[in-house]
Simulated scan of single mutants.
Amino acid sequence: MEKKKILIVASLSHSLINFRGDFIKSLIKSDYKVYALAPGHPDKFKTKLIEYGAIPIEFNLNRTGLNPVMDFKTIRELKSIMKKYKIDLVFPYTVKPVIYSSIAANQCNIPVISLITGLGFAFTGLTFKARVLQRLNETLYKLSIRKNKVVVFQNKDDYQLFLDRKILKEDNKVAFVSGSGVNLDQFQYRINKIESNKISFLLVSRLIKEKGISLFLEAAKKLKEKYPESEYHIIGATDNSPSSIKEEDLKHLHNLGIIFYYGKQTNIPEHLYRRDIFVLPTYYREGVPRSILEALSVGLPIITTDTPGCKETVKKDYNGILIKPQNLGELVNAMEYFLINKEKIEGMGINSRKYAEERFDVKIINKDLIDLISKVI
Rank of each mutant, 00 (worst) to 15 (best):
P97H: 12
K129L: 06
I103W: 07
I116A: 00
T117E: 01
K96H: 08
L133S: 11
G125H: 14
R135V: 06
Q107C: 10
N109Y: 11
A104K: 00
K96T: 02
V98N: 15
L136I: 15
L115E: 04
T127C: 13
T117I: 02
P97Y: 03
L126S: 05
N137R: 09
K129G: 06
A122G: 07
V112G: 00
I110M: 02
T124D: 12
K129M: 08
F128N: 14
T139G: 07
V112L: 02
N137G: 09
K96C: 05
P111M: 05
I103P: 02
T127H: 15
I110Y: 02
L115Q: 05
N137P: 10
S101H: 06
L140E: 00
R131V: 02
F121H: 13
T139H: 10
T139S: 13
L136E: 10
F128Y: 14
G120C: 09
L140P: 00
P111V: 01
T94I: 13
I103H: 13
P97A: 10
I110R: 02
I116W: 00
I113S: 01
G120M: 12
T117N: 02
S114K: 05
F123T: 14
R135W: 09
I113E: 01
F121R: 09
F121K: 14
P111A: 05
L126N: 12
G120A: 12
A122N: 13
A130Q: 05
A104V: 03
I116Y: 00
T139E: 10
V98A: 07
V98H: 08
A130S: 11
S102R: 04
T139W: 11
T94L: 11
N109Q: 11
G118E: 01
F121L: 06
L133C: 10
P111R: 06
L136Y: 14
C108V: 01
R135S: 05
P111F: 03
G118N: 03
T124F: 14
F123N: 08
G118S: 07
A105S: 02
C108S: 04
R131I: 04
V112W: 00
A105M: 04
